[in-house]
């Protein structure tokens, strides 16, 4: 399959700080590709390079068959971008903003009107179309941004934290539209997110990025399998320490932890391992009062590769601010 996006040693330095460090990856046509990482990992910088807003310091990328450095105009015609920040003109209405962006893509007026009506309906902003954007709430602005990014029906759509700060209902509506877009026009979608469930549920392949480097690429399923299979939690009635020894002795078990009467461990295939374990425990007259088998979540995958939980990262804005300061210093 030909690739919609191909990054080749893509690198961005701000002074001494390397925001993106020789990354290589491919995104196939028609795919939903997730870029997952904590703040400051280099997600937004990567999107800026792929969308020709920022010039790479080293390496390049090919987007829709065009080189981002040599053919930026061609790249821009192929893509739609929903940046993280608000970009709509506050002094204009939502409708005027959409029509302006449509004109910049060279979309004929009549067609632009049709699409704008449809998009405003999709993001549930029809009622506010003739209001100035400065009167919009945060959620409304983000929805307008998404409509603006879709007005040119791009071959490749870049979404930088598209659903940030939106309620679950709007998030679902937006994903529904993204799927519809792909079904109708075969749009390739490249998105960054820190909603792990969202990446897990909607992305077909995921790249995990941290400190400007890609740590892993694969389907959510592959990534989870690499982490080491399923997580089994058993609550026992009997000697926990004996039970622990039994479980540790079984082939393929790792990461055993005990809390009270509950034993938690990882095993490659939970469904076949569970009966074996229960049988072994029964032989020693240890009864299991409950057992749960869980596939690993993206949260665990993330922890495995980056050594930290994404949620902890999000709660501390400190690192993000430090990153911003580094960038602004480097630019001076």
């Amino acid at each position: 399959m030909e690739s919609a996006i191909k990054a080749i040693n893509l690198t961005k330095r701000y002074g001494n700080f390397t925001a993106v460090d020789h990354i290589n990856f491919e995104v196939y046509y028609g795919e939903i590709f997730g870029f997952l990482g904590p703040n400051g990992a280099g997600k937004t910088t990567t999107i800026k390079m792929l969308t020709t807003v920022t010039r790479p310091s080293e390496g390049t990328a090919v987007v829709n068959g065009y080189d981002v450095i040599k053919q930026p105009a061609k790249v821009r015609e192929s893509i739609g971008v929903v940046p993280q920040e608000y970009t709509a003109d506050e002094d204009l209405t939502g409708w005027e903003n959409l029509m302006l962006i449509a004109a910049l893509y060279g979309i004929p007026k009549s067609e632009a009107r049709e699409r704008a009506v449809e998009l405003l309906d999709m993001v549930e902003l029809s009622y506010a179309a003739d209001r100035k954007v400065e009167t919009y709430s945060g959620g409304m602005r983000r929805r307008l941004e998404i409509a603006m990014g879709l007005i040119n029906r791009p071959a490749i759509l870049f979404l930088d934290e598209p659903t940030l700060g939106l309620d679950a209902q709007t998030r679902a509506a937006i994903w529904e539209y993204v799927y519809r877009l792909r079904r109708q026009f075969g749009t390739t979608i490249f998105m960054t997110t820190h909603y792990l469930e969202e990446a897990d549920q909607y992305a077909e392949r995921i790249a995990i990025i941290d400190h400007g480097k890609i740590l892993a690429i694969g389907t959510p399923k592959e990534l989870k399998e690499k982490v080491g299979g399923d997580v089994i939690t058993i609550e026992v009635n009997g000697d926990v320490n004996v039970a622990r020894k039994v479980i540790e002795g079984i082939d393929g078990v790792s990461g055993v932890t005990v809390v009270g009467n509950t034993i938690r461990f990882k095993v490659r295939n939970g469904n076949t391992a569970a009966p074996v374990i229960l049988e072994s425990l029964n032989k020693l007259s240890i009864r299991a009062t409950s057992i749960t088998i869980k596939e690993p979540t993206m949260d665990e995958v993330f922890l495995e590769y980056t050594g930290r939980r994404l949620r902890d990262e999000e709660s501390s804005g400190e690192e993000f601010m430090r990153f911003r300061r580094t960038i602004s210093r480097a630019r001076r």
Partner: peptide
Amino acid sequence: RLGVLSKLLTTPVP
């Protein structure tokens, strides 16, 4: 400052 420019730069407008 308001981000409008970064949007304009992603469009094919010269």
